[in-house]
Design a protein around this nucleic acid. Structure first.
Lengths: 180, 180
DNA sequence: TGGGTCATGTAACCTGTTACATGATTAG
DNA sequence: CTAATCATGTAACAGGTTACATGACCCA
């Protein structure tokens, strides 16, 4: 249920086309949500049916015509409702393909598991560095009761997640490599 | 792509019905993969079309008849192929609904975010305790080059994930509560 | 001048969720 | 005795992925 609400959230900032939203997603939310471009179009369609957004066609000559979406009063209400709703269990659903593969790795030589972990480690490293750079680029962030820095808390989460994963990989790999 | 392969993995242990597999999933893999019962039936169907499993009808009188699945040679080959394939990027796709909600929480009073985090914390606590109990129940695990204890590495991951989340929640909540 | 990328989307497919059905057995 | 749970699934819908289409513009 989060993609629609993510789109609503972005649309509170400004009116946007599906294409814009796809970019915005990638720029601002991608370290905790990967949004598929074509899915965004479909979701916007449904959201219009629900009355959460309204679109208008904009003719362009150098580029394909586009459809620009704006959030409605209903959409705002729905966003607030979702934010206020307490549904922690739903949010806690896990699905970790890395662990799934690792779990069954007893069927193949351990080098395959080691390689996979090392590859994964690289990705974590890169992601961690990227987030760190982004945070550094922002500098000091002010936090007040009226405007907590939620963005910062989310990045803090991601940073630590990558760090714990890297540590776990290092330990697991060396554990595997020591085995005789 | 992991559900099918998880099912293949379980089917290397013993022949099972869809129902059995659903239980097995919940008992052994649920802390890193939530599998939906009805989805399992559909996947088994497709896996039979692919030639990865073979089913036979078993008539029962006290209970509904069932269909028991066994893994084929093709299925085994596919499982091995999947285990050997290096696809770390695919495994790294993130989607975190908790962070999505937190990110937009500036639209509502901060108490809602605090509540959500506290609820979520409870769930982490419970899950952590459950895994700890399970690990303790197993006792010493032997690890050899021929049989690394992958199960243990996966639980170790989950334990640490819950721990880091709990720590992050505590810090974030107190940060939020201090704001004036 | 030919191959990438920008800017816009559509169509088809695959994966996950929710709701329902049925008859037996167990718990309170 | 009645409600829950076991043991088996099916059907419909919602959400996510992959592949493709089109015309302009930009780089080598």
């Amino acid at each position: 249920m989060s993609l629609k609400h993510g789109l609503l959230g972005l649309l509170t900032l400004r009116k946007s086309s599906g294409y814009d939203l796809s970019k915005l997603f990638q720029e601002s939310l991608s370290f905790f949500w990967v949004a598929n471009q074509s899915q965004i179009y479909r979701e916007l369609d449904k959201m219009e049916d629900l009355g959460w957004v309204l679109s208008s066609k904009v003719e362009q000559d150098a580029r394909p015509n586009k459809r620009v979406y704006g959030i409605t009063k209903e959409g705002n209400k729905e966003l607030i409702r979702w934010l206020k709703e307490g549904n922690a269990e739903d949010l806690a659903v896990v699905r970790n393909p890395l662990l799934m593969k690792l779990f069954f790795s007893g069927k193949v030589d351990k080098e395959y598991a080691v390689n996979l972990l090392k590859e994964y480690r690289k990705i974590c490293e890169e992601a961690r560095a990227e987030i760190a750079a982004e945070v550094a680029g922002i500098g000091e962030v002010e936090e007040t009761a009226a405007k907590p820095a939620y963005w910062l808390y989310a990045t803090e989460y991601s940073m630590r997640q990558y760090e714990f994963q890297i540590k776990w990989i290092d330990e697991t790999v060396s554990r595997l490599e020591k085995l005789k």
